[in-house]
């Protein structure tokens, strides 16, 4: 409880700041309307009007919350207007990219730890790959996969998501697989352990804390990648597409609701990874 208090205060402060900002930003429109009608409203009359506009510049929190609630609970989840439906589309893309990213990251890390030539030739390029802004390539990936006859946007989205999520896994796993010290490696050698056995019984268990730490970063990165994959590419389904739709039709509330839905999704994903980590730790006999 004592640790929750400061967080609550900061959150309340942010919400208060948000209300103040939305009054300030939406007031212009109210004044414009009033001037057109030949009235001059007082500040006390203006404030309620800034709270309930159809197309506010900055919607106040309760408007966003009610729109979010309507999107989450007010629709059948198969409806195209349901945020659960769009969230699920984004979730599916995220998971595909996440899985691909893990396989790629762990595979490369294993090769890099095993072969010196991989370490020297692939590692610098892996770093460079992350300095290339993926969004520049995103439309390209779409065009190529379209030309290759891949229908739908699942594959390109997953590629973009995995491009962002493989790197944290790679870096952590390289560190993790190298975590056992020389003594432990020597011990296994005196027992005549083969390379496969050393990997299975020493390197892999030793890398697990690094692995799970990287998963939390990777799942967030995969979500960002999926949303980026949906944003500029004219997708029609998914939270990114909802954000785009809101901006194209001048309906800021749609964009804001989608934004918060994606924040909820991110929170769920990170919690889920934390849960898996705890389960795995218990299975492997780690004491907290």
């Amino acid at each position: 409880m004592r640790r929750a208090a400061p967080v609550l205060v900061v959150l309340l402060g942010l919400i208060a700041l948000w209300y103040a900002a939305s009054v300030w930003m939406n007031a212009t429109w109210v004044y414009d309307q009033a001037a057109r009608a030949g009235e001059s409203p007082t500040l006390m009359e203006v404030i309620p009007q800034t709270m309930a506009q159809e197309r506010p510049l900055l919607p106040p929190p309760h408007q966003v919350a009610s729109r979010l609630w309507e999107g989450l609970a007010g629709q059948a989840i198969t409806s195209k207007r349901s945020l659960v439906y769009h969230g699920f589309v984004t979730f599916r893309g995220t998971m595909a990219g996440f899985a691909l990213g893990i396989v790629l990251g762990v595979g490369l890390a294993m090769a890099i730890v095993r072969f010196r030539v991989m370490d020297m030739s692939v590692m610098p390029w892996a770093i460079i790959s992350q300095t290339v802004p993926i969004v520049a390539i995103a439309p390209m990936i779409l065009v190529v996969s379209n030309q290759l006859g891949i229908q739908g946007r699942e594959v390109p989205k997953a590629i973009i998501a995995s491009y962002l999520s493989f790197f944290p896994v790679l870096v952590s796993m390289v560190k993790g697989l190298r975590a056992p010290d020389q003594m432990q490696l020597d011990l296994l050698k005196t027992w005549g352990a083969s390379e496969g056995q050393t990997f299975r019984k020493l390197r892999l268990p030793a890398s697990m804390p690094y692995f799970f730490a990287s998963l939390k970063v990777a799942v967030a990165a995969a979500l960002v990648g999926t949303i980026v994959g949906e944003l500029p590419t004219g997708a029609v389904e998914g939270l990114g597409a909802r954000m785009l739709l809101g901006s194209q039709y001048g309906e800021p509330l749609i964009t804001w609701a989608a934004l918060f839905a994606s924040a909820i999704l991110a929170g769920i994903l990170i919690l889920a990874v934390g849960l898996v980590e705890r389960l795995a730790n218990r299975r492997m006999g780690v004491r907290a």
């Binding site: 967080v7 900061v10 979500l223 939270l239 785009l244 901006s247 964009t255």
Partner: peptide, 22 residues
């Protein structure tokens, strides 16, 4: 700091790119 750090940690993991259209 006590309040800002957990909030910041969470927000850093969010897809802020979505703010772009707004």
């Amino acid at each position: 700091r006590e309040g800002l750090l957990p909030v910041g940690n969470f927000v850093a993991a969010l897809p802020i790119v979505g703010m772009a259209p707004i």
